[in-house]
Nucleic acid binder design. Sequence first.
DNA 1: CACCAATATTCGAAAATTTCGAATGCGAAT
DNA 2: ATTCGCATTCGAAATTTTCGAATATTGGTG
Lengths: 313, 313
Amino acid sequence: MRIHNLNFRHLRYFMVVAQEGTIARASKRLNLTPQTISGQLKVLEEMLEIELFERHGRRLDLTDAGRQALEYAEEIFNLGEAMQLQLHHAGNSRINCAVGIADVVPKSIAYKLLAPALELDDPVHLECREGSMESLLGDLIANRVDLILADRPIDASTHVRAYNHLLGETGISMFASPSLAKRYRPDFPHGLNGAPLLLPTDDTVAGANIMKWFRARHIEPSIRVECVDSALIDIFGQAGTGLFCGPSVLESELQRQHSVETIGRLEGIRERYYAISLERQIRHPGVQAITHRARELLLETGQETALAEESAD
Amino acid sequence: MRIHNLNFRHLRYFMVVAQEGTIARASKRLNLTPQTISGQLKVLEEMLEIELFERHGRRLDLTDAGRQALEYAEEIFNLGEAMQLQLHHAGNSRINCAVGIADVVPKSIAYKLLAPALELDDPVHLECREGSMESLLGDLIANRVDLILADRPIDASTHVRAYNHLLGETGISMFASPSLAKRYRPDFPHGLNGAPLLLPTDDTVAGANIMKWFRARHIEPSIRVECVDSALIDIFGQAGTGLFCGPSVLESELQRQHSVETIGRLEGIRERYYAISLERQIRHPGVQAITHRARELLLETGQETALAEESAD
DNA sequence: CACCAATATTCGAAAATTTCGAATGCGAAT
DNA sequence: ATTCGCATTCGAAATTTTCGAATATTGGTG
């Protein structure tokens, strides 16, 4: 089978399997049978002439090649959707603001940061897209997004000339399902040696900070799951796979929606969120609305915590 | 038909039709029948819910939406190929240098600039890709290419932090098919009022310079064709559609290969070519080979014309 | 250990999509 | 007016995708 038979569907199935971790779950999400997914995955591997997953027992682990392919697939997909959206809205052009959300940013945080823009007198039409920082920066310089929401400022190493706008910050809390909470809350944090932990991958700001925090206190939890998307961590956490960290501002929300309990706060860590744009002085009305209002409506209530400063590069 | 049925083939057919200008020629190049192309093009238009071409008589002209879609399609395609290449070579990794060539750069020039790297003791393995400047800059920051060959340095407006390395420069000559040459050579350049002209689009350096040159001399040629890819201009020129400009260093080559004649030189215009990389001081051995040797082997022989300077941003 | 539940895969057949041959209509050139 | 080249429509053939049924393998459990 030739490479030109490569279909967006192949890529999509592959992406979903990589995200879900298993063909069975992917097939449910895609409303397809497992055979189909399995078959098409094989076809994709044959077309690319490389193994995307390592089959360990019934577990599918992404190979190195698989990880690379995944990045490409996501980017290709984003482009496809961007094309569709842009063309579709070409006639009735009312896209005021296209926002790229780095996938390390919790969705609820993104919502909180973007919500102000929707409540303006002259409401902004938002168009959201998720992706890796790298892929979103490409979208930014190509003007496919007006703004990126990220968990860190960009610096010289990214090779993109853009500006960071601090939107707000929050502390980090630790959450767990009720049974785990009962066990580990009493002597938090020093009783966490060997405790099962779910973490953001350590190339994220949050992941690195949390690891550092534990090391500084000579605590060694047992890391069970690492992943980029925090929504996935919430699910695992809800299921009781392990303890996990999340923004303190989301405490009540997490408790309510995912039936987990707060077992403590990681004092000293502050998570910050940034808007990244190409303009130092923001002219784009949609972006302006977001950055201005986000700063009024600080993430953490009370306190002097969430400053509204601006840092270049 | 749903969007997920979008196939790489749809995009490819669309791209080829846009390039060739007619379904018939596209079908020849793709080894398919015209019905197929026509049908699939229609399917694509229906999926995107927008007209890609305006049907004027039997001429197909890209609509605005079509032009936008074309850019996306090219970028998506490049990503697909990059993925394929990178994964394919993941095992036997011997890609020393991935180069992006801006589509405004004549292919022969690109060849001349890259050739030195192939003649080294320790030969470099090159991997080339073409595209718009914007799309290539995205590739550069995502490390999918190590180097971009362009007709202009990048500046602050691109929002990419990268460095320009002047590789060489050349004058501009005007060419024409024998019959046109006979008519217009005698009183070049002032007899060119109303002469049929083929131009690079005026968002290219070459196009803008040439227009300026004519305006300064109060000459008003009649512009017949504008396009980005200079190879296409050569073809039109060969067919006698009009006079066209090209790098003086390619005079002999154009005369031989396209049976056209030189009718004069546009004194005062110098076309420069640049390598753009993320590193100011180049460490990448492949890139080093290209930039170093390109400067020794200057584009225009003799003269003091081609300097080897380096400019930041 | 045997058993069970969950998963991935293989193998045909059915469904959907793409391609082509034949035929039609339209525009441009002679 | 005629003819040629091109785009398009239609139905049939070829190809690709999907699914149902069956099989194999893993991991856990009594």
